[in-house]
């Protein structure tokens, strides 16, 4: 029985879905499909008829194939149209991935370490419970020195003290490496002060201490390093100001201020005083100085040959500035409602 192309096409067009279409394909073009059979039958015809019949059967096969393909495309298209018919609000909030929340001070610490790595500094650490020697005496703060009042100290009942600063790490590191100078380190860590808390002070916080010792290290080196650091932390437009200060373990000693990140150093926001710097245009960020010759002598380094600088500042302070946190006690409370913003 000859197959009617138009009829077949109509059947294909009428296939309701992809399953029906597939069934039809098998019925027509499968191994035992009717179109296939017709093609096979050509071989049994007398040679004279073969050419014509063959060509017709082949044409039918091609036509059926094309129709199946076209219907398939149409069906899939209809399916997509159906699937996309539900409206999708492209602006509605997405499903949140369940990521955690890094602590802001910890983020800043990581960022600082990253900056220093780029400047060739390595991380050193020291004990949080220190001896009086490393926390005070070696740093040129003898017992009964009034400077001990600068950092109100906790003491343990037996001996030792929770360190009041990370500067003791300077001594420990230099003791280990005095025969292989130069050194260039940063030393982050927790410190403890026996002071009442307020929005700007908590009794425990982190410090990051920097130390460079080499031949011919100068105040200009210190200034350039601090300047680079400020730009790294607070942005390229940041300017540095040094003010004279006193620390027993550095000489000269300076206080480092950076231009305020909120008012850009003008001190003003419109008519009002800037809320962050209080109108001065400067933010106090920490202390620094050239290592005191007595400190170097305490370790056994000749201050006439070697010189160095040290600096220290607080990641919480930087975090408070960077993220606009106006109460540093938040860093220690842990309050998830606060931390979830980071």
């Amino acid at each position: 029985m000859a197959l009617d192309e138009a009829q077949l096409k109509a059947r294909i067009e009428g296939a309701a879905d992809e399953a029906a279409l597939e069934a039809l394909r098998v019925e027509l073009l499968g191994r035992k499909g009717s179109v296939t059979e017709q093609l096979k039958a050509v071989g049994e015809l007398p040679p004279a008829e073969r050419a014509t019949a063959g060509s017709a059967a082949n044409q039918l096969r091609l036509a059926v194939q094309a129709a199946l393909e076209a219907r398939g495309i149409a069906l899939r298209q209809a399916q997509f149209t159906q699937e996309l018919s539900t409206p999708l609000d492209l602006t509605a909030p997405g499903t949140q991935p369940a990521l955690g929340h890094r602590h802001p001070a910890s983020l800043v610490l990581d960022e600082l370490i990253e900056l220093y790595w780029q400047m060739g500094y390595q991380v050193a650490e020291g004990p949080e419970v220190e001896t009086e020697w490393y926390n005070f005496e070696a740093l040129n703060i003898p017992a009964d020195h009034p400077a001990r009042d600068m950092q109100d100290t906790f003491y343990l009942e037996e001996a030792h003290l929770p360190r009041t600063h990370t500067s003791g790490i300077q001594i420990r590191h230099l003791e280990l490496h005095k025969d292989e100078l130069p050194v260039r380190i940063i030393a982050p860590g927790k410190v403890y002060r026996n002071e009442d808390e307020d929005a700007r002070h908590s009794w425990t916080f982190h410090q990051i201490e920097g130390l460079v010792v080499d031949e011919g290290i100068s105040l200009a080196d210190l200034k350039g390093t601090l300047e680079a650091m400020m730009r790294g932390i607070l942005g390229d437009q940041t300017k540095l100001r040094l003010r004279s200060n006193y620390f027993p373990y550095t000489e000269p000693s300076v206080e480092m201020d950076a231009t305020c990140v909120v008012c850009g150093g003008t001190g003003k926001l419109g008519e009002k005083d800037c809320h962050l710097c209080g109108g001065s245009g400067w933010l106090e960020l920490g202390g620094a100085g050239m290592i005191h010759p007595q400190v170097l002598r305490n370790i056994g380094i000749d201050p006439m040959v070697y010189s160095g600088f040290a600096f220290g500042f607080g990641p919480e302070r930087i975090a408070a500035i960077k993220y606009g946190v106006d109460d540093v006690r938040e860093f220690w409370r842990p309050n998830f409602a606060f931390l979830e913003q980071f």
Partner: peptide
């Protein structure tokens, strides 16, 4: 008390703005 103390006095009077900025050279032994 010593020479370094006088250095500080000099720079305090001259002003820290006079100090140029430089990045120290880093020549580690290893």
């Amino acid at each position: 008390k010593e020479a370094q103390d006088l250095v500080e006095e000099v720079v305090r009077v001259l002003g820290y703005d006079r100090v140029p900025s430089r990045i120290p050279v880093w020549r580690p032994r290893q």
